[in-house]
Amino acid sequence: MPTTVPLNWYLILSAILFGLGIAGFIFRRNIITVFMSIELMLNAVNLSFISFSYQLRQVDGHIFSFFVMVVAAAEAAVGLAIILTVFKNRATLAIDDVSSMKN
């Protein structure tokens, strides 16, 4: 049993989480869940930023993921406000039903 793991494993974990985020983004039909899948992708990216920061012994990766967090917060505020408005106007959260641009 090795006592440590290589840094690559962190990157692979990040890739797996990113892939799961994509899958959720594509498969789910609830706006809020789709939104959460995006957050999952952002988290996966943060993990790889911090792993690279460890590899390079520099703090810049932390700063980047800090900015990602800030952007995610702004995105959540606006996105959830949009979702609230959509729900108020259409009383649904399914993205398939929000298709007035189509026809």
Binding site: P2, Y10, L13, I16, L17, G24, R28, N30, T33, L93
Partner: peptide, 26 residues
């Protein structure tokens, strides 16, 4: 110890990630 912690929490992260995708309730 590092390996155990990594594997444990990576497993939790992946399991929770899969759960996020397959659950139908938000």
């Amino acid at each position: 110890m590092d390996a155990i912690l990594f594997l444990l929490f990576a497993a939790i992260a992946v399991a929770c990630g899969i759960n996020l995708v397959v659950q139908t309730h938000p």
